[in-house]
Design a protein around this nucleic acid. Structure first.
Lengths: 171, 171
DNA sequence: TCATAAACCGACCACCCTGGTAGGATTTAG
DNA sequence: CTAAATCCTACCAGGGTGGTCGGTTTATGA
């Protein structure tokens, strides 16, 4: 698996918040119940999103969470990065002073790390697909599913899955 | 990390084989020594590549391994798939009858799995970058590094890393 | 024919990360 | 004051990762 369940749970949480009007905060318990996820664990998940500045919170009774920015202004690479940490294809990738993550392998046996080119491309493919998807896209997708297939086993992705070859649900 | 060290070791092994002429087999020990990797572990790695039909082997003295096909006819998604198994972004992805891997989440709370759209796009981004890179690309990259920076700490990727933003080493 | 080099095979194991649980402390509405 | 909620830290079981080990089989070549 590429991403852990923290990413899954966290993205679901963000979508849930995106579906709510930002007028009043939504309690974590409401979200955990709706999604069938353990509340105590969700606390850890949402803490990451809060520390990353993606959601805001209010304590006390009738407290809860809401999006810090409009959903169409939140790219999913921010969300996934907050949840999973650095998106690096391999151990050898380390942060440099920018946001980029690069391979740090010593050139071994006189030649450089031959796999670097491949992992850089993979990383590029992942980051690009995350950058070009906004939370609003997911919220809209979620709403569309609700309308078109409220009870069927269908997922709403059938038409996209049926695409001839490659390029599935291209960003 | 997205890929385990099996992928790293296996890809290095393939590049190493791609650098050899396919006339005579290369022993695993020679590769393990050259790359500084544990021989016993490499046996497990190469076994996966052999079972996938990517390399061929000869037993006995002066035996070894060689590529089953020319390097420019081996796309890296085959290699990574042989080493890592199915490339699925999340637990919930399962094989269907084709090669595709899809999310199997039940529609929960009346609506479908909202994260599906995102993970499908990510999977698409990864697979596309792997499909459009051949082993020959990596072998050539490896040779280029050898020529241009045989001793410097440089990796040979500097010019590509320096690209303005996004799209690093685009496939 | 015999030693040596190599592929091949299966069992085993230590460590670490993931996915949680537990228990509390703090803040706020009513 | 009490209930509802966020917030915080520690703890823990299980499984996967990254190996090791010992042995078997196959081929070369002296």
């Amino acid at each position: 698996m590429i991403f852990s369940s923290k990413a899954e749970y966290g993205v679901r949480l963000m979508v849930e918040l995106g579906r709510q009007s930002p007028e009043h905060p939504t309690s974590l318990k409401a979200i955990a119940d709706a999604e069938g996820l353990p509340l105590a664990y969700m606390e850890q998940v949402v803490a990451r999103l809060r520390k990353a500045g993606l959601v805001m919170s209010a304590r006390g009774a009738h407290g809860g969470y809401w999006l810090a920015r409009p959903a169409d202004d939140i790219a999913m690479d921010e969300v996934v990065h907050a949840l999973e940490g650095t998106i690096a294809p391999m151990e050898c990738f380390v942060h440099d002073h920018t946001e980029r993550v690069l391979c740090s392998h010593e050139p071994d046996a006189g030649r450089g790390c031959a796999t670097k080119l491949l992992w850089m491309r993979v990383q590029g493919g992942i980051i690009r697909s995350l950058q070009t998807t906004t939370l609003a896209d997911l919220v809209e997708f979620s709403r569309k599913q609700e309308r078109t297939a409220p009870d069927a086993a269908g997922s709403g992705l059938e038409s996209e899955q049926a695409r001839p070859a490659g390029d599935p649900v291209a960003a």
